[in-house]
Amino acid sequence: MLEFDGLHKSYGDNHVLEGVGFTVAPGSMFGFCGSNGAGKTTTMRIAMGLARADAGEVRWRGRPLDEEARRRIGYMPEERGLYPKMRVGEQLAYFARLHGMDAAAAARAAEEWSGRLGLAERRGDPVEKLSLGNQQRVQLAAALVSRPEVLILDEPFSGLDPVGVDALAEALLEQCRAGVPVVFSSHQLDLVERLCDSVGILARGRMVATGTVEELRRRESGRVLRVVVPDAGPGWAAALPGVRVVSEQAGDTLLELAGGTDDQQVLAAALRTGRVTHFGWREATLVELFREAVADPARQVAAREEVAA
């Protein structure tokens, strides 16, 4: 198990992390979501020993990560970085050696990974001569080349074209199947939804939701009701008790029902406006779950009061 446990970090008065914790099982992929500046990068940097946590620790197989354990982690920083003038093959071999491989094994691994990621013909080229997409592949190869036990990737998909995304996704799934726990952060929530076994949403330095996408959905599900009433006037549902209007557009209405509200009363109210062409519970997408989770609670309450008034 890869465990992030109660991480706290502040820079001066700025409390970046306030008790971030989650667990990633071997062979599972964990999607780490959160708005910009939520603290994802700081969390990953703490795991890699690049920042010190004020409190809390990161454990792998029950033991706090130390330098030796970190050498067995493949890492891709948010700020991509390679030696621009160093050749692809040499660069990969160098990183493999820094992770503890001997010279021969490092050379083999560099050749293997440059081949697997479609860089075979660019091995002898300096990195700065490569296209951005190919540089990104080298970056991934640098994270994978030492056969890491754990992968921690900060925004690995950003800047990739759809083909690159698929190739990277395939490479990560393969690592997962081999039993490697993978943690990656991303703003592309559809990708997270597609790839990840579990998801963590970070907001204001705290984990506001963790679990499988299914679990998150179940927790939220049953609450958003889509009703299409073409003949209804605007604001037709605003006065219903226990109902919040999420959106309303030409009769296509999304409603959030408080616990215990009878959906049949909503249907009755809808029928009173005229024709009802659609009435059903809607599966929330991760994007909606995310919006819901990261919304500022204070503002959310205010919004509800506004709607209720």
Binding site: G49, L50, R71, R80, G81, Y83, P84, L98, H99
Partner: peptide
């Protein structure tokens, strides 16, 4: 080139 972050993940 920001490679320093990758380096410091493996050494002091």
């Amino acid at each position: 080139s920001r490679v320093v972050e990758l380096l410091l993940a493996t050494m002091r």
